[in-house]
């Protein structure tokens, strides 16, 4: 049986956050809450990326200061790849929110509600 160490606690935070978000996205009946849950799930994953790319100690941002030796820089800066993934996912998340918001507003226009229980023209 493996025991989680202190350095792994952020993972557990991510796991719980992701589970709550997936639950909410699947079972909440309010469309807006569903959307927020999905967006928060993206954030949970972003958090996972960031904590995996973080360097303990005197870490610096991944921008090489003028005159620094690249090998020194590589040994103290944080992971740029994780940041890259997060930056990309944030932009994509914005597009998701724009799309879903537009759809939710239109649903509200048509049905006068955003509760999935009350929107049942289609049988599924």
């Amino acid at each position: 049986m493996m025991i989680a160490t202190a350095g792994q606690l952020p993972y557990i935070l991510v796991a719980i956050m992701a589970s709550i978000c997936i639950y909410a996205a699947l079972f909440k009946s309010n469309l807006f809450k569903k959307m927020l849950a999905i967006f928060l799930l993206t954030d949970a994953v972003n958090l996972l990326f960031i904590i995996q790319g973080y360097r303990l100690g005197n870490s610096i941002p991944p921008i090489i200061p003028p005159g620094m030796d690249p090998s020194d820089f590589a040994s103290i800066a944080v992971d740029p790849l994780a940041h890259y993934f997060v930056v990309t996912a944030v932009v994509i998340g914005l597009a998701e929110v724009a799309t879903l918001t537009a759809l939710i507003i239109y649903t509200y226009k048509h049905y006068g509600t955003i509760e999935t229980k009350k929107i049942k023209e289609l049988r599924g």
Binding site: A4, Y54, A82
Partner: peptide
């Protein structure tokens, strides 16, 4: 996640980019 390493190091690919 129990099998994952403790936080606080940068994976070699990140160091490659840096």
């Amino acid at each position: 996640f129990l099998g994952y390493p403790e936080l606080g190091f940068v994976r070699p690919l990140g160091e490659f980019y840096l």
